[in-house]
Design a binder for these strands. Sequence first.
RNA 1: CGCGGGGUAGAGCAGUUGGUAGCUCGUCGGGCUCAUAACCCGGAGGUCGUUGGUUCAAGUCCUUCCCCCGCAA
Length: 308
Amino acid sequence: MRIAFLGTPDFALPSLEMLIGAEHELCVFTQPDRPAGRHGELTPPPVKVMAEQRGIPVRQFEKIRSAQGVAALRAFAPELMVTAAFGQLLSQENLDIPTYGCVNVHASLLPKYRGAAPIQWAIIEGERVTGVTTMLTELGLDTGDILLFEQTEIGPDETAGELFKRLSALGAKVLKETIERMQNGTLTRAKQDEALASKCRMINKEDGRIDFSQSAQKVHDLVRGANPWPCAYALLDGEPIKIWKTRMTQEPPAGEPGLCAVADPRRGLYVDAGDGLVEILEMQFPGARRMDAKTALLGHPLAGRRLR
RNA sequence: CGCGGGGUAGAGCAGUUGGUAGCUCGUCGGGCUCAUAACCCGGAGGUCGUUGGUUCAAGUCCUUCCCCCGCAA
């Protein structure tokens, strides 16, 4: 099939790779190269890198809705359009181009967690199950009819980064099946139940701020959901300390929220949360690299100090 | 050359106005204890990232380059 693939970051890679392997006639549309990294060097999006390596034509547009974007899509004349973490909104004009419409791969069990950062938010909100959904794109944000979905359990200590990898692979699998069934005519579509719908916003740095007056489970969920980005943190004397990994304990609370109840290079670092202690396993001081808490404690005496 | 922080014993850090380096953990040896994430005594281990310079003297001041981290994007 002639497929226009619209995607940008790593999440889209397994899906793109699957399409390449299935020998569809592809053209990739992605975002322009952006300044990135320490020196602001112009960096191509991951999807572009893969496409070029595999000899797939690539087109980049600031806005696919623009006249040029629409013209380029029309010129390719796709039968199907596939989006996976594209990062741009499509117009009705865009959606009208492919004969079979547009399929979106979304990293949640729709209609829950519509929007920008479903993987992080699902973990932060303590979900135990999530998944991937393919849907027919329409103008609303992730509101189109559901085609297929597959669910998966979230591990109790799983991070957003780890889940991200699993869901991107699962996304490729569900997309493959979606296209196959579309081709052999066994695909069905189901309206989303608006009553069950929820929207999640984009996640930002501030969302990583830990509130130690919340339960230990909440703190742990935030740390997992914010890893690797934006990364959970707390302030020590006004300085942000990044918290990369934590572990739930059965220990009862020992003092005020955020208090470093135990801070010993041999025993580890235990901090008070609302209803018990959380062990901090990996952390990062300003200017330093990320390290396990016991090591960090060697040069940073924290006993009795308080994270806020 | 977007802004800023940093490179000191195996590891994590400290080193005041320039005067041949300290702490914690680890490590090696010894001791104490029913026992210990405990404690005591002793030892080994550092060309202070790199280049050049200032100085009687530089981890500490200036300079070249390399690497790490944060912010911003």
